[in-house]
Design a protein around this nucleic acid. Structure first.
Length: 681
RNA sequence: GGCGAGGUAGCUCAGUCGGUUAGAGCGACGGAUUCAUAAUCCGUAGGUCGGGGGUUCAAGUCCCCCCCUCGCUACCA
């Protein structure tokens, strides 16, 4: 009996590029969907860009283009990235679409008419110059608690105090720098508390993983709060039908994008939208999400659907966050890796396999350990799996014109055991326990390699025992085919190459219950290249930012310092005063012919005049990125004659004490306002 | 501060209701082999299961305290 299944991944926001953290989710979901399809189920996978809200609006404004244009550009970028990683959406749509507007309005109006929407006055920071209300992240000022400068409107990064945006001292609009004023406005609120009984029951319906249900209980205990669903103009989004100048908050119409994408697909293909989303639907509906957006998907979303006259999801599957080498992704460490960066250096199938090896059905975080990544992919994929075909296909081709044995040879029940193992593997996939599935598959690969070893086709060839040789290699190729079928959800590209090698119309779970006999296979070609650690190094180098001043957005966390004691003895102030530190502007930076570590810098020290300094920072900075930036220079350092010229000072940069990572180098910068030549101390 | 998850071999992880000498894969080391993308096969070493206390005939597994990591939360959801 085929199941009818609808699957979604969370919608990526149109303000940013896809990175390796996003890909945990898309790869996890895609594997599941491909698995369902491979098993013969009627499974559809929908997603879309999440396009609305202030950040998109502002970014478009900064770029001087219409938000629609920005959104469209990002849509294309996202789709290209997904395609490269073989994320096989059946439809990838946009929340900025007519379908989404109609559905959002329907959900809103039904809830409103049923009394689930109320109004309330909200006091907010408002910028007169920009003529808009400012979200917390768009206000900067001095922390009222510790006095740290230039903090966001919601919390201090320095002392982690939280406060209202209007409590900030010397608050400024992040866009224009003007101080905001306080202004109140009427907002619409979704009465989430109306749905508490329904939600409590839905939570216990098996829709949630145990950890998530626990989290929900916490929220229930602290009481469900009503949800502010409107924003005032100007806002990039959908205007609320009965409230001119007010727009749906982006998070209201974002999940509706799942439905809009479905609808758009159904219109194109003649399928029934209602069969998926209206009450009475017998389809299974699953949302894959990150644990950070649990609240939206397990409280607001089911409540909105319930109140809006739609069915609720069968289940929501949350996963944890990605860490790289055990730490949060970090731009300065070069571990904030965009999909694009990765694609420039490495094969997407490596990542798909590695993630699969680490994924479970629980909400645990997942670590991408790059050393482990290289070893594991090479050992498992190339060493164990591909090797099966590569060590036997040659014999089939050279000695038997590519034809497999016409009758399946006696193999001591090996093939049957592989087929049987498929049931367990399928159960792991179904439960999203990919790590366990991968282990089971690799155990089979070990068995297959052992079989070859024990039957030594190379000696059979020497002894000219052709029948036996043919049998052993035919068995091996058949075992290989089963393995690749089991791996197909994870490795669609390699599975496709295998399908081609074996001259099959398709690899399917059912199809491999019976072995291939008498068919002809094509000459063996490489199915997957081995990972070169140098590719990983190159990736990290490329992901490291070329320009230091961080964009607003993710705070850049400092690399941990080694916990060694201070290396040097204490000195009196007078000693320090002998160092003449000055602000310098880098007028020009250039590569130095014959030196692979150095950059030649032309500095402007203001009243002290121009200087030339050679600095060993080429590993971390490109010349272009330095032009015109300010930094700190030791101005009274004894000039140093070098092979390439005279160096008249030294610029200051931070690096690790052990100096293991040559690219972990960070130039110092004065805060804005400093001028070349200013004395530091 | 509150809550949650986690701390098991060099690395990544499994360890079901507490039960015999704590497991796997990778890596390391030693052998074998040469068909294969230096792949494969056999074998060896390596862990006071974060620390301390307790319950028990028996604790990685239960209870208490502490340390460390990560995350969420603290008039955002």
């Amino acid at each position: 009996m085929t199941r009818r299944i609808l699957v979604t991944s969370a919608l990526p926001y149109a303000n940013g590029s896809i990175h390796l953290g996003h890909l945990v989710e898309y790869i996890q979901t895609d594997i599941w969907v491909r698995f369902q399809k491979l098993r013969g189920n009627d499974c559809l996978y929908f997603c879309a860009d999440d396009t609305h809200g202030t950040p998109v609006m502002i970014r478009a404004r900064n770029e001087g283009i219409a938000p629609e244009l920005l959104v469209q550009r990002m849509h294309e970028e996202h789709q290209a990235d997904f395609k490269a990683f073989s994320i096989g959406f059946d439809n990838y749509y946009s929340t900025h679409s007519e379908e989404n507007r109609i559905l959002s309005e329907e959900i809103y109006c039904k809830n409103r008419d049923a009394g689930h929407v109320q109004t309330a006055l909200v006091r907010q920071a408002y910028c007169n110059k920009d003529a808009m209300f400012l979200p917390d992240r768009f206000i900067r000022g001095t922390c009222p608690s510790c006095g740290a400068l230039d903090q966001y409107g919601d919390a201090c990064e320095s002392c982690s105090a939280t406060y209202a945006p209007l409590d900030l001292k010397q608050a400024k609009c992040a866009l224009c720098g003007e101080p905001p004023v306080e202004k109140s406005s009427e907002h619409l609120f979704f009465r989430l508390s109306d749905f508490e009984p329904f939600l409590k029951e839905w939570t216990r319906s098996g829709a949630l993983q145990a950890e998530m249900a626990n989290k929900l209980d916490e929220w229930f205990e602290s009481g469900l709060k009503n949800w502010d669903i409107s924003r005032d103009a100007p806002y990039f989004g959908f205007e609320i039908p009965d409230a001119a100048g007010k727009y749906f908050y982006v998070w209201l119409d974002a999940p509706v994008g799942y439905m809009a994408s479905t609808w758009n697909y159904c219109k194109r293909t003649g399928r029934s939208f209602d069969a998926y989303w209206r009450p009475g639907s017998t389809a299974e509906v699953y949302h894959f999400i990150g644990k950070d957006i649990l609240y939206f998907h397990t409280l607001f979303w089911p409540a909105m659907l319930q109140g809006g006259g739609f069915r609720t999801p069968t289940a929501v599957f949350a996963h944890g966050f990605l860490t790289v080498n055990g730490q949060k992704m970090s731009k300065s460490r070069g571990t904030f890796i965009n999909a694009r960066h990765y694609l420039d250096h490495l094969d997407p199938e490596y990542l798909r396999y590695y993630y699969a090896c680490k994924l479970s059905g629980r909400v645990d975080d997942l670590d991408l350990n790059l050393d482990d990544f290289v070893l594991r992919v090479n050992a498992d994929m190339v060493g164990k799996v591909v090797n099966l075909a590569s060590r036997t296909a040659g014999f089939i081709h050279k000695q038997f014109q590519g034809q497999l044995c016409p009758d399946y040879p006696a193999d001591g029940g090996l093939y049957q055991s592989f087929v049987q193992a498929g049931e367990e593997i399928a159960a792991w996939y179904e439960a999203r326990e990919y790590a366990k599935a991968m282990r089971a598959i690799m155990a089979l690969a070990d068995t297959a390699n052992r079989y070859i070893e024990e039957n030594a086709p190379w000696s059979l060839a020497k002894q000219q025992k052709e029948a036996e040789l043919h049998a052993v290699c035919s068995v091996a190729i058949n075992l290989f085919r089963v393995l690749l079928t089991y791996l197909a959800p994870v490795l669609p590209v390699m599975a496709e190459r295998t399908r081609d090698l074996l001259n099959l119309p398709a690899l399917t779970w059912e199809g491999c219950r019976l072995p291939l006999c008498g068919t002809t296979i094509k000459p063996f070609k490489h199915l997957m290249a081995r990972v070169d650690p140098k590719q990983v190094e190159a990736l990290l180098a490329a992901a490291r930012p070329q320009e230091l001043p961080p964009q607003s957005g993710e705070p850049v966390s400092p690399p941990p310092l080694p916990s060694s004691p201070p290396a040097l003895a204490t000195i009196p102030l007078e000693s320090f005063a002998q160092v003449d530190l000055r602000v310098a502007r880098i007028v020009q930076a250039e590569l130095v012919a014959g030196a692979d570590k150095l950059l030649k810098l032309n500095l402007d020290l203001g009243p002290l005049g121009p200087r030339t300094v050679f600095a060993g920072i080429r590993a971390a900075y490109s010349p272009e990125s330095l032009t015109n930036r300010l930094t700190v220079v030791v101005a009274n350092l004894l000039p140093r004659k070098m092979k390439f010229g005279l160096s008249e000072g030294m610029i200051l940069a931070a690096s690790r004490e052990d100096n293991t990572d040559k690219t972990a180098l960070f130039l110092l910068s004065p805060d804005a306002g400093a001028e070349p030549g200013m004395k530091i101390g």
